[in-house]
Amino acid sequence: MTGEKVLLMMGCPEVPIQTSIALYLSHKLANLGFDVTVAGTGAANQLLKVSDSDGYYVKKLVNLDKTLEDVIENRADFDICFAFMHNDAGMTYAATMSAVSKAKLYSIVFGRNAEALAETIEFDCEMIIEKAAHNPVQLKNRLDKVVEGILK
């Protein structure tokens, strides 16, 4: 797995667990040898920067729209993409990534409307659905298993 390029795509940071899971997943994957990039909206990135002010957990933090543009224009691509989504816009961004990238896509569907949102997903991806909004532990445990599966 060394060097495989992973993108964590963060959407609107309104639901608290996104930031903590992004920090956790970025660090875990980097420690396993993945080349991790985290892309987010302006506010999502600021939350991450303040939480990880020395860049210990997230080494590469970039703008979400700019990253999508780079993938669309064939200037960049990834092997694996984790797309966070708790609203329709997050799902829309993931659908675009699914259409323009060769990355294996994992949709992290979370928040109170997670199940209903997951039903609207029509693109090819592996879904991790968790209704959690404030407590990230169950989603973290689910993602640990997903990462184990990737390593096999």
């Binding site: 999508l68 669309i72 829309t92 659908a95 259409a99 323009v100 029509e122």
Partner: peptide, 17 residues
């Protein structure tokens, strides 16, 4: 059109196909 289709020179459309 497909997701990422460019209009007005530099706007790539984000969307569900």
């Amino acid at each position: 059109v497909s997701p990422g289709y460019k209009i007005f020179k530099d706007y790539h459309i984000i969307g569900v196909p």
